[in-house]
Design a protein around this nucleic acid. Sequence first.
RNA 1: GGUGGGAUUCCCGAGUGGCUAAAGGGGGCAGACUGUAAAUCUGCUGGCUCCGCCUUCGGUGGUUCGAAUCCACCUCCCACCA
Length: 363
Amino acid sequence: MSIYTLLGRSGEARRGRLSTRRGAIETPCFMPVGTRGTVKAMSPAELEELGAEIILGNTYHLFLRPGLDIIRAAGGLHPFSNWKRPILTDSGGFQVFSLAGLRKLEADGVRFASHIDGSRFFLGPVESMNIQRTLDSDIVMAFDECTPYPATWEEARKSLEITSRWERMSREQPLNDGQIRFGIVQGSTYADLRERSAREIVDIGFDGYAVGGVSVGESEPEMLAAVEAAVPFLPQEAPRYLMGVGTPRQIIESVARGIDMFDCVMPTRLGRHGTAFVGDGATLPVKAGRFAKDFTPIDPECGCYACRNFTRAYIRHLFNVGEILGVRLVTIHNLHYFLTLMRRIRTAIEVGSFEELRARFTV
RNA sequence: GGUGGGAUUCCCGAGUGGCUAAAGGGGGCAGACUGUAAAUCUGCUGGCUCCGCCUUCGGUGGUUCGAAUCCACCUCCCACCA
């Protein structure tokens, strides 16, 4: 039985449903990032109210803290965090990239020096799968090497080969009942390598496929070209996930190229830093001094809790004095923005107005 | 009334003859952020016709080649003594 049901399409854009043991997810979808077992500043109840159907967790971070003993004793990440809907856990492959200065690549994985206290530990496909089993997430990501940017063709090829090897090892590890596993395509900005990686990963065989190694510093055209190069080699009947992307326009452009799932820290991080998403992908620096006496909501058109109840002037004040409510309100607004964007995209594909919607996102 | 201490750029506060438009902090302003080492980080913060010039360190007047820094007087503030 397939985990992915195609419900409709508009060109390459797909409207679908992803089935997990903790419920279905309507796609295209956006997954808020909860690296350390919490979507920063949000309670599970708030996330549910915002309409988040699935969130992310992270293998590397949760392995370090609180550690497997505590997660195991709690009965997994779900009971530990009281989030009842699906969780996708990243494998730690992104930390191979983001913590490049603190690790050493080896044949069967990566030797890390903890970014917290410098203590050494080893994380490879076997370890990552083991940790994700303990976390008991619903979607497990294969362990990959997120290729840095820029990379020469030769470097990208070598990195891709490491990833294929590690993903094959990942695939050999057992999972808990009902857990599903996604493979990750690498290949940097090289179309031929993207194709090769996609073929190899599909050949290994996963429940879903991710395009990784994007949003690592490359230009938007390069990112979209990487998607275009990989997607044709991914099976129609499996969900496709573009990792770490992105801006509203990048999301909609990727949907137009056949992507079903997204995650990005942008709404939550920018929320904490006082920048709100408005309109058709524009940003508004709410904490800016020019809003000191602006008694309108962040976005008058928005229906989120923050916009229904608070003004720019007040939220700016909260940031100005360092009150956590400011962080929370803009996070709520931004997550509402991204989740509503996905809802609009899904509806547009259903009713045949996707290209119309897409054309509006020019920022 | 007396004695002592003090007044520095938006604020606090260093600086006691040239290396000082003046440390540091705060505040303010701007920018960055894409599978989160991030409620973080970076830059700017006297003016201008801006590779140079002008104005500024309570006020006025001196000393000196040169003063925020030394001297005199004045104004205000603080502490203690009457």
